[in-house]
Amino acid sequence: MTADIDEKAIRKDDPDDLVMALAEAKAEAICQKLPHGAVREKPSSEEDARKFLKGYSGGYAATVSSVLVTNLKSGTRKGGMDRVEIHFDEIPGEVIETLIMEGIVLKSAGGLIIEHPSIVPYVKRVAGTTDSVMGLPKALPEKLIKDAL
């Protein structure tokens, strides 16, 4: 997928700053093209968390992570994205309330925490890796580091 941004519209005096600004603009443009219903950050309230979790119940959520590595010796930069889809069975209301009461869902993007013992039984399928959902797709930076070397 290409970003299709106007690179000339992004200007920085320092080459390092410029390539980073371009990478960020491209990543944002690509994220906007991906099929998603909403970008969800950490819930700002228990009501937000409740809404998010009820929205996943019987449906699915998707996460998108991006990684950019820089070889400080050569200046080579390599970046990539990782997408995971999580499909859920119906999540009972009492499970949602327990997760909210514990407060843990308020500390994760989208209130999404598929490794918690209370939610594990309702995770039907994960298309991708759990580590990516938790914040860092381990295989991606390993590959990018090798590519940048």
Results as ranks from 00 to 15, higher is better:
His116Asp: 14
Asp48Lys: 06
Asp89His: 15
Asp4Lys: 08
Glu142Phe: 10
Asp131Ala: 07
Met1Gly: 15
Pro141Asn: 12
Gly128Arg: 04
His87Ala: 10
Val64Phe: 02
Gly75Trp: 00
Ala62Thr: 10
Cys31Ser: 04
Ser132Ala: 15
Gln32Arg: 15
Val39Gly: 04
Gly59His: 14
Leu106Val: 00
Val120Arg: 15
Lys146Trp: 08
Ile96Glu: 08
Ser65Gln: 07
Ala61Pro: 02
Ser57Tyr: 09
Val95His: 07
Glu41Phe: 06
Asp16Ser: 09
Leu34Trp: 04
Pro117Cys: 10
Gly111Leu: 02
Ser45Ala: 08
Gly93Tyr: 05
Ile145Val: 15
Val95Thr: 15
Ser118Leu: 13
Lys146Phe: 10
Arg83Cys: 06
Val126Glu: 04
Met101Val: 08
Lys26Arg: 14
Ala61Ser: 12
Lys107Pro: 01
Pro92Val: 08
Val64Arg: 06
Asp4Ile: 08
Glu102Lys: 15
Ala49Thr: 07
Leu112Met: 10
Ala139Asn: 14
Ala148His: 09
Lys138Gly: 02
Thr2Lys: 14
Arg50Met: 07
Pro35Tyr: 12
Glu102Asp: 14
Met134Ile: 11
Leu149Asn: 13
Asp16His: 07
Gly80Ala: 06
Ser45Leu: 06
Ile114Thr: 13
Thr129Trp: 04
Thr129Arg: 09
Ala29Gln: 01
Asp89Ala: 12
Gly103Glu: 07
Ala148Lys: 11
Leu72Tyr: 07
Ala29Asp: 04
Glu85Arg: 13
Glu41Arg: 11
Pro141Gly: 08
Asp14Tyr: 02
Val105Arg: 01
Leu144Cys: 07
Leu144Ser: 08
Glu97Gln: 13
Pro92Ala: 09
Ala29Tyr: 01
Leu149Asp: 13
Asp48Glu: 15
Gln32Trp: 00
Ser44Pro: 03
His116Arg: 12
Arg125Leu: 12
Ala29Thr: 00
Asp89Trp: 11
Lys54Gly: 09
Lys107Asn: 14
Leu99Ala: 05
Gln32Cys: 05
Phe88Pro: 03
Ile145Glu: 06
Gly103Cys: 08
Met20Gly: 02
Thr130Arg: 14
Glu41Val: 09
Glu102Phe: 04
Val123Met: 07
Ile100Met: 03
Leu72Thr: 13
Arg40Gln: 14
Ala127Pro: 01
Ala21His: 01
Phe52Val: 00
Asp13Ser: 14
Ile113Ala: 02
Gly135Ser: 10
Val19Gly: 02
Ala21Trp: 02
Pro43His: 07
His116Asn: 15
Arg40Pro: 03
Ser65Ala: 05
Ile100Asp: 05
Glu24Pro: 03
Asp17Val: 03
Ala3His: 00
Val67His: 03
Ala148Arg: 11
Val19Asp: 10
